[in-house]
Amino acid sequence: MKYHEAKRQLQHALKHQQTISIKKLNEILQSMNFSFEGAQDEETQYLKGEIKKLTKQLRKNRSDGNGKGKGYKRTSERFESNHNTTIGG
Results as ranks from 00 to 15, higher is better:
Met1Arg: 07
Lys2Ala: 10
His4Gln: 15
His4Phe: 11
Glu5Trp: 00
Lys7Ser: 15
Arg8Glu: 15
Arg8Leu: 15
Gln9Ala: 15
Gln9Trp: 01
Leu10Met: 11
His12Gln: 14
Ala13Leu: 09
His16Ile: 10
Gln17Ser: 13
Gln18Lys: 15
Gln18Phe: 02
Thr19Asn: 10
Ile20Gly: 00
Ile20Pro: 00
Ile20Asn: 00
Ile20Trp: 05
Ile22Ser: 02
Lys23Trp: 08
Lys24Ser: 05
Glu27Asn: 04
Leu29Glu: 13
Met32Asn: 01
Asn33Val: 00
Ser35Thr: 06
Ser35Lys: 06
Gly38Val: 09
Glu42Gln: 14
Glu42Leu: 15
Thr44Tyr: 12
Gln45Asn: 14
Gln45Ala: 14
Gln45Leu: 14
Lys48Glu: 10
Gly49Ile: 00
Glu50Gln: 15
Ile51Ala: 05
Ile51His: 00
Lys53Tyr: 01
Leu54Met: 13
Leu54Trp: 09
Leu54Phe: 09
Leu58Phe: 04
Leu58His: 06
Lys60Arg: 01
Lys60Ile: 02
Lys60Glu: 02
Asp64Cys: 07
Asn66Gly: 09
Lys68Arg: 11
Thr75Ser: 11
Ser76Tyr: 13
Glu77Asp: 04
Phe79Asn: 15
Phe79His: 13
Asn82Leu: 15
His83Ile: 02
Asn84Ile: 12
Thr85Asn: 07
Ile87Gly: 08
Ile87Lys: 10
